[in-house]
Amino acid sequence: MENLNLFIRSIFIDNMVFAYFLGMCSFLAVSKNVKTAFGLGVAVCFVLIIALPVCWFLNTYLLQPGALSWFGEEYATADLSFLGLIMFIAVIAALVQILEMIIERYAPALYASLGIFLPLIAVNCAILGAVLFMQQRDFSNAWTATVYGAGSGIGWLLAIVSLAAIRERLDETKIPAPLRGIGITFIITGLMGIAFMSFLGIKI
């Protein structure tokens, strides 16, 4: 029950894009058509679902103060938490590399349309952000971390697909010239954020 609540919360209320502005760069750059946006969203989901439990294990059994006590008594006082950032980014970069190979092999069309943004998932802040939030919130087990990862990923996917759907229609509208392109996209994202705020307070 608690996990379901966390799942719903991370999709709608703590949405990566609208509540924390994470992953904005690729969010703005790849949202020009729905198909590509969907592909990138699924890739981000995939990386999040794998990266969160892996980083949870790293954090619990290696990095936290006292985490090394399973290794021997004399290591019980060790605190490696300052190494967290480097470890997490290495895990994420490796996962993205694997994902890139898989997509190139099985979905070459998607691979071509994602282009440079596929390797750049490694520096997508939504992923490192979710890992850092997980570290901050002290989830009690790896399953909760996975649920949080899935929720954040689906929230991001939902956001980028809906923005892409709106932007596909923008060509037919009259927009003041200086606002065209990136300006109007910002405003739309802001309005979508306000719309998403209406989910505040939902509890299961």
């Binding site: 609208f18 509540a19 924390y20 502005f21 003041p176 010239a177 200086p178 606002l179 990136i182 300006g183 109007i184 910002f186 405003i187 994202t189 802001g190 309005l191 979508m192 954020g193 306000i194 705020m197």
Partner: peptide
């Protein structure tokens, strides 16, 4: 204070700058 207004503020800055 809420997150969405940050986006709209930046959009206004972009507007003035492009103008």
């Amino acid at each position: 204070i809420l997150p969405p207004m940050a986006l709209i503020t930046v959009a206004c800055i972009i507007w003035f700058h492009r103008r």
